[in-house]
Each structure stands twice: as C-alpha cells, then as structure tokens.
Computed example of a mutant assay.
Amino acid sequence: MSKQRATNKQRASDRLQKLVVRRRDPVLEDAIEQDRIAIHFQPQIEPATGRIVAVEALARWDGEPSASELFQRARRGGLKERLSRFAQRKALRMAGAWPAPLSDLRISINLLAEDLGRDGYDQWLLEEIALAGLAPDRVTVEITEDSLLADGRLIAERLGRLREAGIQIAVDDFGTGYANLAYLTSLPLDTLKIDRGLITDLAEEKRGRIVVRAMIDMARQLDLKVVVEGVETPEQLALIADWGCDLYQGFLGSGALAEQDLAELIQAAAA
C-alpha cells in the first residue's frame, strides 16, 4: 500500500471514528431528561469499628450494568458531561435531604477530567452544594489519576478553590494510572483511594502486600487518608486494618445501595 493510500485510509478511519463517537443516543438522553438515572451509595467503613462514616455516590441505570459502562455509553453519545452533572446534582440533593442518622454521613461524588477542564465548574459545584443544603465539609470529590494528566496548574487552582471552601479531595483508583507521582505534593489532596485491582490477591501475593503496605505508609507520611476499594474477604480486611487503612469499600461490607436500603443498614448498625 502506498504512503498516500495509507494516509487517506487513516483519514477515512478518523472521520468514521468521529461519526461513531458523536452519534446521538436518544434513549439515554430521555433517561437523563426524565430522571430515570438512579443514584446508589456504597458505604465507606472503618476497619476497626465497622462504622459507616461515608458513602460514594454511583449512577445506576437499567440500560447498562455498571456506572463505568454507563459513562462509556454517555461518551459515545456526547452526553458524558451532561450525565456527570446530573448525577452530581442528584446525589448532592438526596444527601442534603437525609434525616438523622444518614445526615451524619460524608458523601463522595466522582468528577470527570472534562468537569475540571470546564471554565466555571468549581463555582457551579459550590452553588449546587449550597442549593442542596449541605455543608461543604461533608463533601468529598473524587478524581482519577488520568484526570491529572491534563493541565496540572489549572487543575491545582480549581481543586484549591474547592478545598478552600471545605471540600475534601480524593484521588480515585490510585495505583493504576500513569500520572507523575509529583502530583501528590503539588496538588491539594486529602485522600488516596487504592484501586480494587491491587487488593484482589492480597492474601496470597507477597509482592502485592508489599506494594499496598508501601502505598499506605507513603500516604501516612504525606498526611493523607487512605480508602481501600474492593475488599471482599476477612483476610484482606485484617491486613489493611493492621497497616492503618482509614476506610474501606467492598462487598465484604456492602455493595452500592439504594437510598432506602442504605437507611435500613445504618439504622440496623445503630441498633
């Protein structure tokens, strides 16, 4: 194949890819418009006491089996940012209306790289928190390591404004991305969330134990909290508790719950 033919073929492929990415998804558009995207909440639990102190808000829809696949579909339909803001707003307003004992819980919401890159997003989020009737110090925003590959200075400024208002900042899926670890000292962070992929074989894998323990030790020295995701066995829980993990998420404690199920779990624990 000639170089010119190869170039033309690549251009055609690129155009086709753009058409695929931008194809409308009226079913998902309608689900967002008609408020058919649900928000479930996965507890974050103290290893030593079993006390639920926070929850992570996760979008759920019958049309896709998981939040990650839902957002992939939203990206293909050009709806990713719209879905993100819808889910954030809905989660905040649900949490703002919670009675005791749910009203003591912190809530974590997930931010996209596109959110942080949008002018005025930080002010929008602060206004949504106020409209929800939430104190900013009850809110944690979670960003992935991939989000940090963009303009580091800009991201630091916007996260800094959120943190100055009392919001806590967490890096999600820590240990799976390719961001320069210098961001641990250059960004205003409060928490590292260690990815579930590093926990799966923790009880059997010596190297895995060394890596996770080193991450927790490093976070401690940086005065950061640690949340471990994907905890599914008592053996995993015993190890991370011994190493000083602050909170854990995972099926050993609870999966993501609808609001009523969360309330019943909290009430049962209190009783």
Rank of each mutant, 00 (worst) to 15 (best):
K3P: 06
K3L: 15
N8I: 10
N8C: 09
D14Q: 07
R15Y: 10
Q17A: 15
L19M: 12
L19Q: 14
R23W: 06
V27H: 13
I32F: 02
I37R: 04
I37Y: 02
F41M: 10
E46Y: 02
T49I: 00
V53K: 14
A54H: 01
E56T: 01
D62M: 02
E64I: 06
S66W: 03
A67T: 08
E69L: 15
E69V: 10
R75H: 13
R75D: 12
K80R: 14
S84M: 09
S84R: 09
S84T: 15
R85D: 11
A87F: 01
A95G: 04
A100W: 07
L102N: 06
S103N: 05
S103G: 01
R106D: 13
I109F: 01
E114A: 15
L116C: 12
D119R: 11
D137P: 03
R138C: 06
T140G: 05
T144Y: 06
D146A: 15
S147P: 06
L148T: 04
L149W: 01
A150Q: 14
A156I: 07
R161E: 12
Q168R: 15
A170M: 09
D172A: 07
G175E: 03
G175H: 01
T176E: 04
G177V: 11
Y178V: 07
L187V: 01
D190G: 03
L192P: 00
L192G: 00
K193M: 10
L202M: 13
K206Y: 08
K206G: 02
R207E: 14
R207F: 06
R207W: 01
G208R: 12
D223N: 12
V227T: 13
V227K: 09
G230I: 03
G230W: 02
Q236R: 11
L237N: 08
F251M: 10
D261P: 04
L262S: 11
L262V: 10
E264T: 13
L265W: 03
I266K: 06
A269C: 06
